[in-house]
Simulated scan of single mutants.
Amino acid sequence: MNQQNFNAGQAQARAEDSMQCAKETATAAADRAHAAANTTGDTAQQNKDEAAGFLQQTGEQVKTMAQGAVDTVKHTLGMDKK
């Protein structure tokens, strides 16, 4: 009977160790997932900001080109004189 109690105690200790290890692994995985989500969110915001800047710059370039075209047409037609 003592051997059975000893074996049962060892099995319980191993089960508790396994549970603790599983908890630690789950916590570490959750921490990594949280960090990855934060990094992804930061990267998405940075990409959004860069895209907005690019579109702003492109819009300014198109506006400048359009004004240049208007000025060229006015000059060609002699309408640029005040």
Rank of each mutant, 00 (worst) to 15 (best):
G78Q: 00
N38K: 07
L77I: 03
T72G: 05
A29M: 03
Q20T: 05
G41Q: 12
G68R: 06
A30N: 13
A28L: 07
A29G: 03
G78L: 00
V62M: 13
A22S: 04
A13R: 01
E50R: 11
A13I: 00
A66P: 00
N5Q: 13
A52D: 11
R14K: 03
G78K: 02
D17F: 11
E60Q: 06
R14A: 02
Q3D: 14
N47K: 15
D71A: 13
T72F: 06
K81M: 06
K63C: 01
A44T: 14
A29Y: 02
A51P: 01
D17P: 00
G68Y: 04
D31Q: 10
R14Y: 01
A30Q: 15
A52M: 15
T76Q: 07
C21E: 12
N38H: 11
A37K: 12
T76N: 08
A66V: 01
A52E: 13
D31V: 04
A33Q: 08
L55H: 05
Q3W: 15
N7S: 05
N5W: 10
N47C: 11
A28R: 05
Q46E: 06
T64R: 10
E60P: 01
G68L: 03
T40E: 15
K74E: 09
Q45C: 06
A28N: 01
G68K: 04
D42T: 04
K48M: 14
R14N: 08
D80G: 04
T72P: 02
E60I: 04
M1R: 11
A13N: 01
T27W: 08
D17R: 13
Q46W: 10
Q57S: 03
Q45R: 11
T39I: 10
T27K: 15
A15W: 00
A36Q: 02
T40R: 15
V70Q: 10
Q20R: 07
F54H: 12
A35T: 04
M1D: 06
T39D: 12
A52W: 08
K81C: 01
D49I: 13
T27N: 12
Q57L: 06
R32H: 07
A37Q: 14
E24I: 00
E60D: 03
K74G: 03
F54M: 06
L77G: 00
A11L: 01
A29I: 00
K74L: 06
T72M: 11
A35P: 03
G59M: 10
T39Q: 14
Q67N: 09
V73D: 02
D80H: 09
V70K: 12
A37P: 08
T40L: 14
A28K: 02
E50C: 07
T39A: 15
T25G: 12
A11N: 02
G41M: 09
K63Q: 09
Q3G: 13
A37D: 13
L77Q: 06
D42W: 03
T72I: 08
M1F: 02
Q4H: 14
G68A: 06
A22V: 07
N47H: 12
A29R: 03
